[in-house]
Amino acid sequence: MGDGGRLVVRRLPPRATAGVLVLPGGREHGLRRPALLDLAALRMRPFVTALAAATRDLPIALAEARYRHRGWNGERADAARDAVAAVGELSRLTGGGPVVLVGHSMGARAALRAAGAWGVNEAAGGAAGAAGRTGGPAVAVGEPAGPQDGAGGGPAGGEPRGPAGAGTVAGVVALGTWWPTGEPVGGLAGVRLVFVHALADRVTAPDESMQAAVQARAAGAQVCRYELAGGDHGMLRHAALWHALTTRTVCALLGLAVTAPEVASAFALPPGSADGLALPAETAVPRVRG
């Protein structure tokens, strides 16, 4: 990755029409750069592998966000700024095509901020076009256009945002979401959000993603939320289920697969409804074990 880069592309078909951006977790505070062998990023690699297999021969670009700092860092919201910039760069690489965000923990929080900044893209159904290519080394992408840093590497001030009316995000899959009290939900109206949380998560409480789901639906987002009995924050227990559910959901958000009935029903519910926010993940992909 080049100095200051926000994006590492794992697959870029010659005529990509859509993209998937994976955003790893991080820390509450930390100004150092993530390590080259960052555990949070490594935790997401099996998701990238599963997504690559599911979209083989399709014009779908796959990329991972790379943060400048390990932490969110309070009002600086460094991970959110990096996520906004990464979405913009991936959208440019796909010719303005829709992007689905897959975030874990801090990465889920950053993904939701980025979705609110860029706005909803309703053209995901046309994402599957000419065949793409798979494989090849990761490509480091340099500093994209987007929010600029202030002097000394700090933020320029204000909320991170994409161009007005950009309409880039096709949906978000938020895994084990870190959602502090008071987190904003601005800009999420119309965005499709699918939350998944392990009930035995001891790092981010399931109540956090429930609160995020309730707030987002009240703000006009189309929301569905799954709960996984047991499980853990690192998504190591029931790993195959995490990967399968995420992959199926991403493909549906991009219009590459039929939206699961329970998800479609949840998306259609009005603000204020609490239904569709505690769906059992085990029954979503019943044949998966592990």
Score class of each variant (00 low, 15 high):
H238A: 15
W178I: 00
S273R: 10
L228Q: 05
V250L: 06
P261Q: 00
F195C: 00
V194Q: 11
A213W: 01
G231C: 10
F267A: 03
S209P: 08
S265Q: 12
Q211N: 01
A244G: 09
W178N: 11
A218S: 13
D232F: 07
V185S: 11
A213M: 00
G176I: 08
P184K: 06
R202L: 15
A200T: 02
R202S: 13
P271K: 04
A268K: 04
E208N: 08
G176T: 14
L175D: 14
H197P: 07
E183K: 11
T247Y: 01
G190M: 09
V194L: 02
C251P: 01
G176P: 06
P206K: 00
W178A: 09
H243L: 15
G220E: 08
P184D: 14
D232W: 05
M210P: 02
P261C: 02
P271Y: 06
L253E: 07
L241R: 12
A268I: 12
A189E: 11
W242D: 07
L253D: 10
L254M: 01
A174G: 12
L236Y: 07
A240W: 03
P270A: 15
V196C: 00
G182T: 09
T204L: 01
L256Q: 07
Q215T: 13
M210E: 15
V258S: 14
A166N: 09
T247Q: 03
T259Q: 03
A221R: 12
H233Q: 08
G167D: 13
F267R: 08
